[in-house]
């Protein structure tokens, strides 16, 4: 667990004392604990005592550790590591990078999320193509994508979500994502808002997070997370996919602008609340 310890840059006590979320990070269980206190134990945050207990032994840490190895390894046709990948805060800077995604990248002229930016670096720096398993396999704890995303994501744990809205494209994507969030369609007339705009409501036994409760919402948008019901680490893109499946929508393309617009909106809705990655979810 040396990997986890390296994240313990600031003692949690400091944050409890009222200091704003540490810029140098916090273990996810400590960040979550603060949210639980802040919300007076919201039913969404505390719905699984087992998961809360398991947080320090989250199986996702093993996935993150494997991701660190992959990240630093020279790989692909160009035999390069990902250490020069720019996730928005400069080449190789991972601390806090995930907390500021999606964002606009001048080199592609696009707003990109963690998934699409990682793919971009694996192509440009390492020479992988869309058909290589390293890129093609998007889901599951054994995939390179999830190992890398979990590692990179964990480097923002405890830091406040702060996706930039300075570039007009960032704002445009966020705003389109908001429209999509409320847009009802398909067999059951569902939109994201159907399930995610009321506090403490349940689908069967599961307590739902509301987009209007940022202190809860941050846990909902904190991916990668290990999902106990899947026994896999899952990404933001996978969350989009699975919600839309339940909503009876057709398949959404991984990394499409439609998916990134939705992720832009939902990340903006968590602004200022701490990233909890890797998280444990049902």
């Amino acid at each position: 667990m040396s990997f986890r310890k390296s994240l313990l840059a600031l003692p949690a006590a400091l944050a409890v004392a009222g200091v704003a979320y540490a810029s140098s990070g916090m273990l996810p269980e400590d960040a979550l604990d603060l949210q639980i206190k802040k919300t007076n134990s919201s039913s969404y945050l505390i719905q699984s005592p087992q998961n809360l207990m398991m947080m320090p032994d989250n199986p996702a840490w093993l996935v993150a550790e494997a991701g660190e190895v992959l990240f630093k390894q020279a790989r692909g046709p160009k035999n390069a590591s990902l250490e020069q990948c720019d996730f928005g805060k400069g080449p190789g800077v991972l601390e806090g990078a995930h907390a500021e995604l999606p964002r606009y990248f001048a080199d592609t002229g696009k707003v990109m999320d963690l998934d699409t930016r990682l793919v971009y670096c694996m192509k440009t720096l390492q020479g992988f193509t869309n058909d290589d398993p390293a890129i093609k396999q998007k889901h599951g704890s054994k995939s390179d994508m999830m190992k890398l995303q979990t590692y990179i994501g964990s480097k923002s744990s405890g830091m406040p979500w702060n996706p930039p809205m300075n570039h007009p494209l960032e704002k445009a994507m966020r705003d389109a994502g908001e429209v999509m969030f409320y847009r009802r369609s398909a067999t059951m007339d569902f939109s994201c808002a159907t399930c995610h705009t009321q506090t403490g409501k349940r689908i069967r036994a599961s307590v739902l997070p509301s987009v209007y409760d940022p202190a809860d919402w941050t846990k909902a948008i904190s991916w990668p997370s290990h999902r106990t019901s899947h026994e896999e680490v899952r990404s933001s893109q996978h969350r989009v996919l699975e919600c839309l499946w339940q909503m009876r929508y057709p398949n959404i393309k991984n990394g499409s602008d439609a998916s990134i617009a939705m992720i832009s909106f939902w990340t903006d809705a968590g602004r200022g609340e701490p990233v909890i990655v890797p998280d444990l979810k049902r």
Partner: peptide
């Protein structure tokens, strides 16, 4: 833009 992303941008 939302309509475009849904119907025209291979979303």
């Amino acid at each position: 833009l939302a309509e475009y992303l849904i119907f025209e941008a291979e979303g």
